[in-house]
């Protein structure tokens, strides 16, 4: 029996399987994504980038920035905490409820706790346990709430509040996610470093902004010219010594566009697929992104 045609058919089916699975199916599933209203706030997301930032995306592509920077935040787990927000009036009931959670809560500790509300009373637990605890506390007349926090080393670095999802890239073309992190992830660069001028100075001479940075300078995106040779100019405010006296460094349109693009990188709204909650206020620094941006001089 000549089973050549059979081999060919089997190979064809095997290969078309992956084509259907990873080309056709994702396309049906993800290409039809629409802007959605974010959870609660009713803000439409995502919106396209402003025109200049879109041009900046092309500068980012043309210089191969994707070789060294990724644009996706990894979330390893989702942590739950319980935060006590209001002690209520029934001290005894609340005390016994708290003892039930953790036997270390004696009257002294609880009195300390009562002074500095809101306070986290249960750390790093599952959602079911957190919900049960909140119910227990509420029954005692106090108020508590569950705080849902995405976690992982990327999030601890302040690269984002949550993982990246398909919606974050809806209007980018090309989408450049990157696979190697020689430098930091840029998915939320605009939230950490919103200053366009910082980015311009950093592109011109990275080491002036971040000591010991291994990033190469992109001086060709700038023009060094005699002060006064062109009437309107917005020179960079660079440290002395980098530019000869009597000269100024002016960003070319590409540099401005690239900086605008970098500032426009923000993907931290809450979507159905990425639940999280902000810790209750007044606990001071506990909320929002703990900025771990590189040391800014």
């Amino acid at each position: 029996m000549n089973y050549g045609p059979l081999v060919f058919l089997a190979a064809f089916l095997a290969l078309s399987g992956s084509w259907v699975g990873f080309v056709v199916a994702p396309n049906f599933q993800l290409s039809t994504l629409q802007e959605t209203n974010t959870i609660g706030a009713g803000v439409t997301y995502p919106l396209g980038r402003p025109g200049l930032a879109q041009q900046g995306l092309q500068v980012y592509r043309a210089n191969g920035c994707v070789s060294c920077h990724s644009q996706m935040v990894v979330q390893e787990r989702t942590m739950c905490e319980v935060s006590l927000t209001d002690f209520g009036t029934n001290f005894v009931a609340v005390e016994s409820a708290l003892r039930g959670i953790n036997s270390n809560y004696n009257a002294q500790v609880i009195n300390e706790l009562k002074k500095s509300l809101p306070k986290t009373i249960v750390f790093d637990t599952t959602k079911q346990k957190a919900d049960a605890t909140v119910k227990l506390i509420n029954q005692a007349g106090a108020k508590a709430q569950v705080v849902v926090t995405p976690s992982g080393s990327d999030i601890a670095r302040g690269w984002g509040r949550r993982r990246s999802v398909a919606e974050d890239y809806l209007y980018d073309d090309p989408v450049m996610l990157g696979g190697l992190r020689v430098g930091p992830d840029l998915a939320n660069l605009g939230s950490r470093l919103p200053d366009v001028n910082w980015h311009l100075r950093h592109l011109y001479a990275p080491q002036t902004e971040i000591a010991n940075s291994t990033m190469p300078p992109y001086r060709f995106l700038f023009e060094t010219r005699k002060i006064g040779s062109v009437p309107v100019a917005e020179p960079l405010n660079l440290p002395s010594g980098l530019v000869p006296t009597g000269y100024e460094v002016v960003p070319k349109p590409e540099a401005v566009a690239l900086a605008q693009y970098l500032v426009s990188l923000r993907a931290d709204v809450q979507l159905y697929s990425t639940p999280f909650s902000t810790p209750p206020a007044a606990s001071g620094s506990g909320s929002g992104i703990s900025s771990n941006a590189p040391a800014v001089k």
Binding site: Q29, Q75, T78, K127, Q128, R163, Y272, S273, P275, S277
Partner: peptide, 21 residues
């Protein structure tokens, strides 16, 4: 199971639903 909303580290629609505010 091919749900468009479920991303790692969530493993199922039910788990994702549990974490919603």
């Amino acid at each position: 199971w091919f749900n468009v909303q479920v991303y790692t580290p969530y493993r199922s629609v039910a788990e994702l639903k549990l974490y919603q505010p």
